[in-house]
Amino acid sequence: MISVLFAVLTALSNGSASVLQRRAALTVPDSEAMRLSLIGRLVRQKVWLAGIGLVIVAAVCQAVALATGPIAVVQPIFVIELPATLLIAGFVMRVKVTRPVWYGVAAVTLGLALAMAAADPAGGSDDVRGAAWIPALVATGAFEAALIAGALGTRGNPRAALLGLAAACGYALTAALMKDAMARLDSDGAVGLLTAWQLYATAAAGVGALFLLQNALQAGSLVAVQPMLTLGDALISVLYGVTLFGEELRAGWWLLPQLAGLALIAVGCVVLSRSPLATAGPPPGTR
């Protein structure tokens, strides 16, 4: 229950951060894409710094959630970040929340509940055994490289979507590394945590994912980024949970309600993508 509560708090914090970061990214010209100067421009904006503050809050909540629950339970809950982001955007951007938006929010929420109840993630270890990280890191690096290469070959929303998925992969990796690092804290105390390579890899992966997300938000609309970010994070995290931590999901006929839940989430994302909230810019006088 504690892990679920802190996972929800993480999703709400990240959703709020995405809105603030998107608002700041709208002021950055296309010429700064995929350059460190992009961060230099953003760091001078208070609204972006406020978003980073919420990212830090989310990271703390996520660490608590991962330390108290399976990654296959914690990360999929972040799917609610999408409807939360758009509802928060409606408030910040002063755009009316219409009935279809509420339908989309309901579809995503119910789909998540159905998929999670049917999958019932359980078991697994708190840490990664042996050299299992080696093939996982190689596969992740290759996938990220392919996404970034594809993004560099396009513009607009397609680039935003590819970079959003790359950021999702980075955040899922960050979560897996964080969970493994927190296991060292439980078993070996503070010294074990500070001497674990996973702790520093967590920081590196998190910074890389944040950089990709800023470029995704700068490249296209929020709706192109957020579904790829939230759904990609959830699905890739479940894959890490099963392959690295040995967590188990229900199989057999349980796959049917799981697929139905994913379908509801997908429908909800499509409905939300048609909302003015998805493409709303900042209110007059803020750019």
Rank of each mutant, 00 (worst) to 15 (best):
S125I: 15
L137I: 10
G150C: 05
A160L: 02
L110M: 12
V95Y: 07
T154N: 10
M116A: 03
G123K: 01
T98A: 15
A106Y: 12
L114A: 11
Y103V: 15
A132D: 00
T109F: 13
A122Y: 06
G111I: 10
R129G: 00
R159T: 03
V97R: 08
R99N: 11
M116P: 08
L137E: 11
P158K: 12
G153Q: 14
A161D: 09
A160G: 12
A151S: 08
A136F: 02
V101I: 07
T154V: 12
G153R: 11
V105E: 01
A115L: 10
G123T: 03
D120H: 13
R155Q: 13
A149G: 06
K96Q: 14
W102R: 12
V105M: 05
A136N: 02
V138T: 02
L112H: 04
G124T: 03
A118M: 12
A132L: 15
A161S: 13
A131W: 09
L162F: 06
G111C: 03
M116F: 11
R99H: 08
A113C: 06
P100W: 11
A146L: 06
A139Q: 00
P158W: 03
L114S: 02
A119K: 03
A149C: 08
G156R: 01
W133C: 03
G141T: 01
T98P: 13
A151C: 06
G130N: 00
T154R: 05
L137S: 08
A149F: 09
I148Y: 01
A151T: 04
L112T: 09
A131T: 13
A119Y: 09
I148H: 08
G130V: 02
D127L: 15
G156L: 04
A145K: 02
A160F: 00
L112M: 04
R129P: 00
D127A: 15
V138F: 01
I134P: 04
A113V: 15
G130D: 04
L162N: 03
V97L: 10
A161M: 06
L147V: 07
A115M: 12
G141C: 05
G124R: 09
A122M: 07
L152N: 15
F143K: 13
V95A: 07
R99D: 06
G111E: 05
G123C: 04
G153A: 14
I148E: 06
W133P: 08
A142C: 13
I148K: 07
R159K: 03
V97W: 07
L112G: 10
D120E: 14
R155I: 02
V95G: 04
I134R: 06
G124E: 10
A151W: 09
N157W: 09
T140V: 10
A118F: 10
W102N: 12
D120Y: 07
V97A: 12
A142P: 04
N157G: 01
A117K: 14
V101L: 05
A149T: 08
G111P: 00
A118E: 13
G150Y: 01
N157Y: 10
A139M: 04
A106P: 14
R155M: 05
D126N: 14
A142H: 03
T109P: 00
P100T: 10
A160H: 00
A149M: 11
I134Y: 02
R159H: 06
F143D: 06
E144S: 14
